[in-house]
Design a protein around this nucleic acid. Structure first.
Length: 223
DNA sequence: CCCTGATTCGC
DNA sequence: GCGAATCAGG
């Protein structure tokens, strides 16, 4: 499994909703809990209440004996900097992202992506850095706008997305009626007011959290 | 034991 | 960039 845009978006959403890494991994499928956590960190999604105290100076694991994982015969000395970084306290990092969430606001810059026709009904996505081979000869026929199926008519499709429209996904990608919310977006947010209420919640203690989370996707996909 | 997230580091 | 292995707290 690879990290497609859809899967990353889902990861971000669920992570900010407070879903656990295990839940996210299960929902996404094909990835482990560790993969989700690793990806979340690489994305810069910042810490949620962790069992491990970040502020406490831990003895850097002096693991002389075991070479548990792939043989690492070179124990290169790695002097842990004794300076305790002024790392964010857990409380600060836990602040519910209520006002001004910048990370969520940045969406794929549509202006840097071009769609080029490769024939009737066929288009390729091309980013600025992509080198693309010769343009295939245009079809000798006039292209007529496709008539949207009744299924998708009036629905907000991927190409309808912009920063003024709620980009909350409805249904599952790939399904015929998959679309986006499309309501007027809460200015500065990727979602409308209603879905902002779902996406951004104050972090509650685990025991006070209701297991059946909001069902933004209509429940887990049945495979 | 189970769960959680954080971190490391070979690939 | 990815994620298994590992760590560490609840």
């Amino acid at each position: 499994m690879s990290w497609t845009d859809e899967r990353i978006e889902r990861l971000k959403t669920m992570w900010t909703q407070g879903s656990t890494a295990s839940q996210i991994a299960e929902e996404l499928g094909g990835v482990s809990r560790n993969a989700v956590i690793g990806k979340a960190h690489r994305l810069g999604l910042e810490s949620r209440p962790s069992p491990v105290k970040p502020g406490e100076e831990k003895e850097k694991k002096a693991k002389p004996a075991p070479a548990p994982r792939a043989a690492k015969p070179s124990p290169s000395p790695k002097p842990a900097p004794a300076t305790s970084e002024p790392r964010e306290t857990a409380a600060e990092a836990r602040q519910p992202a209520t006002p001004g969430i910048p990370a969520q606001a940045k969406q794929a810059d549509a202006t840097t992506i071009q769609y080029r026709s490769v024939g009737p009904g066929g288009f390729i996505r091309q980013g600025p850095g992509d080198t693309q081979a010769p343009i295939p000869p245009a079809p000798p026929r006039r292209l007529v706008p496709a008539k949207p199926s009744a299924e998708v008519a009036d629905k907000t499709s991927l190409l309808d997305l912009n920063d003024r429209v709620c980009r909350w996904p409805m249904g599952h990608p790939g399904e015929p009626d998959f679309h986006f919310c499309g309501q007027q977006a809460n200015p500065g947010y990727p979602y409308c007011v209603e879905h902002c209420g779902v996406a951004y919640q104050a972090q509650l203690p685990r025991r006070d959290r209701r297991p059946p989370p909001p069902l933004p996707f209509g429940g887990p996909r049945v495979r």
